[in-house]
């Protein structure tokens, strides 16, 4: 019973719709774990269950061996789960630097009293937030955008800002919901290198992605969902060779085979 993030028989039903059905998953520390699946397979719902936006209908979610199934979203964030969203959820009318500074929220503890009287805590926190934010932006290659309004940036850069903002909270696991969506090939490659670099520094990453090439190049382990159920899990090679996965993605070939078999007879 270990693993950083673990789910046991997680189900999430919306009325009669089984969006996620009985999924077991275990993400080891230091891994890059990918979740793939056709549209509507329940990937994002599964993500939302893991990060506390939805509560699982059945089953449990453990983070660092702590049951987080019924915890609030904020409490889960405080334990060290950082995430981004499928549609970017930036603070659009704040600068990139301010966005990332809010990412430092958990690392600081200034309260109203500190802020009003500029106590030691306040000064230490402001310095920490400033330095940490700039460092995060530098690492993400976003330094030149620090004072730009987040909403004015291109889509690809916005996605990167969202990742940087999440990183500023020093999460134990970084959950990315389709980080490469809407990016061009160059940006995708840069993102992949960035994620690999992060991982090399010890950051655990869990990501959802549609872009097969991206996932195959980036992830160590992959889980495939289809109609809410887990159909396969393993290394990229294993997954891409799996029949069921190919069926889910490309449709069944049995019809063709049947025809051939009939012709032979």
């Amino acid at each position: 019973m270990s693993g950083l993030l673990r789910t046991e028989g997680v189900c999430c039903y919306f009325g009669g719709l089984k969006a996620v059905d009985n999924v077991d998953m275990q993400v080891e520390p230091g891994d890059i774990f990918g979740i793939i699946g056709p549209n509507g397979a329940g990937k994002t719902t599964f993500f939302n269950v893991c990060s506390g936006i939805y509560k699982p209908t059945h089953g449990k979610v453990y983070f660092c061996d702590q049951d987080i199934s019924n915890m609030s979203q904020e409490a889960i964030s405080h334990l060290g789960v950082g995430r981004t969203f499928q549609t970017t959820q930036l603070f659009q009318f704040m600068s990139v630097l301010e966005n990332v500074k809010i990412g430092c929220h958990m690392g600081t503890k200034t309260n109203m009293f500190d802020a009003i009287f500029h106590t030691k805590t306040y000064r230490a926190d402001e310095q920490y937030a400033e330095e940490k934010s700039m460092e995060t932006l530098r690492n993400a290659g976003l330094e030149q955008y620090a004072n730009t309004l987040a909403g004015n940036l291109s889509y690809g850069i916005q996605r990167r800002v969202e990742i940087a903002r999440s990183l500023a909270s020093s999460p134990k696991i970084l959950m990315l919901d389709e980080p490469a969506a809407g990016m061009n090939r160059l940006e995708t490659d840069a993102l992949r290198d960035f994620l690999k670099e992060l991982n090399a520094k010890g950051q655990t990453i869990l990501l959802i992605e549609h872009d097969m090439k991206f996932v195959m190049n980036c992830c160590n382990r992959i889980m495939v969902l289809n109609f809410g159920e887990k159909i396969c899990e393993g290394s990229p090679e294993f997954v891409s060779g799996n029949k069921e996965v190919q069926t889910a993605y490309f449709g069944s070939r049995t019809f063709g085979k049947d025809v051939e078999a009939n012709a032979e007879n």
Partner: peptide, 30 residues
């Protein structure tokens, strides 16, 4: 006092709620 609050962690968390509550929660803003 308001100026000091706004330009601190407290003010930033207020503004993050104004801009996007979902994202604020994901960053641990209570």
């Amino acid at each position: 006092i308001s100026y000091r609050l706004i330009h601190s962690r407290v003010g930033r968390s207020w503004m993050s709620i104004r801009e996007n509550e979902l994202a604020a929660k994901s960053l641990g803003v209570r």
